[in-house]
């Protein structure tokens, strides 16, 4: 297997961000030749992970998902994200981006596998796409993390997360939640005013939490519970899939109206009653 001539690499760089041009270059590479994986990865990262403009004008929010709905039965979130996208809620998902279209077309992955093979890389194409577990047990980020962060950075309006058991090492907690909280473009998340999540982040930061741990706590304490609460209301099948008792009974602390998603977020201030409780439950991390 031989490396392609510099001409192909130059063409790939010129095709920056264009699916058609990039695929044109990839499909012109002859059998027995490969493009260095580093160039391929840079090319993939140049694809847009924002929702296509033609769809963006017609949506009211964005879907995020992670982990299993039921770990024991291995029930994933996919049927529920599909249900959300087909609902009248007018939500977009990362599948509505050019980046996803580029990856799912298949040519890129085939070339990446060929390159990693030619380079005798210790990584597989799955490692490059989804990340891999490092010696310290943390996950190195993959191309999907790059796309997901960009998708989150451009999310506005109302977010719905299917994250009842989100994995702290996977894309949502590591790459999407930090960006959503940094960009502050959302009005609601899981039917709750987004300020609730921002306030909790501030409270945790004031208590000394930072880095990955900060987002893991926000996810575990707030996002998972509100996701369960919202999705139970949205889909009859969700509670059945969830099966286990709900870990967070937010009805005790928040408004009973869990269909707040498309109400004016500013009119619902019931969450303010919980601020003191948040402060009281925060302990200084033992570092």
């Amino acid at each position: 297997m031989n490396k392609v001539s510099d001409k192909y690499i130059e063409q790939l760089e010129k095709a920056h961000g264009s699916i058609a041009m990039t695929l044109g270059v990839l499909k012109a590479v002859e059998q027995g030749q490969y493009i260095p994986s580093e160039n391929l990865i840079q090319s993939a990262k140049s694809m847009s992970a924002t929702v296509h403009p033609s769809k963006k004008d017609h949506i009211k929010g964005y879907i995020f998902a992670s982990g299993k709905v039921n770990r024991l039965k291995n029930i994933g979130y996919q049927s529920y994200t599909a249900e959300l996208t087909q609902s009248s809620l007018q939500l977009a998902s990362i599948a509505d981006t050019q980046a996803t279209q580029f990856i799912e077309e298949g040519t890129f992955i085939a070339h990446l596998a060929r390159s990693l093979d030619a380079e005798n890389s210790p990584f597989t194409e799955s490692d490059i796409m989804h990340g891999y577990i490092q010696s310290d047990q943390s996950r190195a980020l993959g191309i999907w993390d790059h796309y997901s962060a960009q998708y989150a950075a451009n999310a506005t309006g109302h977010a719905v997360t299917v994250t009842p058991n989100s994995d702290p090492e996977r894309v949502f907690v590591k790459s999407e939640l930090p960006v959503l909280l940094a960009y502050q473009k959302l009005e609601t998340m899981n039917g709750k005013p987004f300020e609730l999540f921002l306030d909790y982040k501030t409270a945790l930061e004031n208590a000394g939490y930072k880095g990955p741990e900060l987002y893991q706590i926000i996810d575990k304490d707030l996002v998972q519970g509100t996701s369960i609460e919202y999705m139970r209301s949205f889909s009859k099948g969700f509670q059945k899939s969830l099966e286990v008792p709900v870990k967070h009974d937010f009805n005790k602390t928040f408004s009973d109206d869990i269909n707040v998603l498309y109400k004016e977020a500013g009119n619902d201030r019931s969450y303010q009653n919980t601020d003191t409780e948040f402060e009281n439950t925060i302990t200084t991390p033992a570092h």
């Binding site: 994933g76 990362i94 599948a95 996803t100 799912e104 989804h130 796309y147």
Partner: peptide
């Protein structure tokens, strides 16, 4: 069928 971000 191509795998999406979920790794399924």
């Amino acid at each position: 069928i191509p795998a999406g971000p979920d790794g399924i």
